[in-house]
Amino acid sequence: MTEFFQSLGLTYEAAWAFATLSGILLIALPLMLAVAMIIYVDRKVWAAINLRRGPNVVGPFGLLQSFADGLKVFLQETIIPSAANKGIFILAPIVTFTVALAAWAVIPFDAGVVLADINVGLLYILAISSLSVYGVVMSGWASNSKYPFFSAMRAAAQMISYEVSIGFILICVVLWAGSFNLTEIVNAQRGHGFGLVNGYVFNLLLFPMWVVFFISSLAETQRVPFDLTEAESELVAGYQTEYSSMSFALFWLGEYANILLMCSLNTLLFFGGWLPPLDVDLIPWFDIPGIVWFLLKTFFFFFMFSWVMATVPRYRYDQLMRLGWKVFLPLSLLFVVVISGWLMVTRYGA
């Protein structure tokens, strides 16, 4: 894109700045639209599973429900509790929202369609997702209220625990792909299973890691069955209890942007990103633009997220901790050893 702006007669640096800015807008604006629509999808899927109708009043099939909600929230009054720590109280939703958007910088939507094609892409995502705990902790503390504080404590413990096993799973994928760069990870998955299917999920050693990664990504985004931070029966609404109006909406948008990020990570790391499922050109697979495959796969994972949400009851807190530390952590550690041993023998020679 820098070349395009340079052809308009700008210097390289100005062209670079414009290209980056327009790249950010091209990711952030569709992402916000996607979040609005995905909330609608989420509610429709729960409704279908619960044999209800779901949103069906605003617009055709209720499609505009999210926008109506957004408008309502926008017009409400922002209430800041008098006992709250004002600066941090206002900062917390902004942090959540910014962090949720920042991680999208390294996500490749198609071959070459990525804002920052950096060497350490996967580490960047790990770094940014480890920041997302701050929005929750800050809001919980700044609200100066019991339930949000409980929720913040739970969130921090939960996110740190599951990040450890997510880190080990990412190491397994990186070992197999031989790179931290997301584009190269996706390219390494081409024709992975007998030169036929694209995606690490068809690898017998990586498939269990995908299962662990999927469950950990539910925990990392605090979705059901791990939504202890906003367990409404115990904590009112968790860390968001004291929030209203736009600050509440920012939490909401950030949360869903994070969920979409985790879905796209599932796609990129295990399901071959923008590649079609089969590496065989039987029907015109490769004529379909890669971004369509990417979005379809991401949407499929989002459907799985809502499916889980509508069917599974919430975990107890000690069960959550046990699953993270006593099941996932040893399992992913074992697989790091097994996978590196296997690669040592087969790929790099004994």
């Binding site: 060497n119 350490v120 580490l123 960047y124 790990l126 770094a127 480890s130 920041l131 705990v133 740190i160």
Partner: peptide
């Protein structure tokens, strides 16, 4: 960049 990311993961994140 590797050290930078580790700084964020380890110090900021944990």
């Amino acid at each position: 960049e590797f050290i930078a990311m580790l700084l964020v993961v380890v110090y900021v994140g944990a």
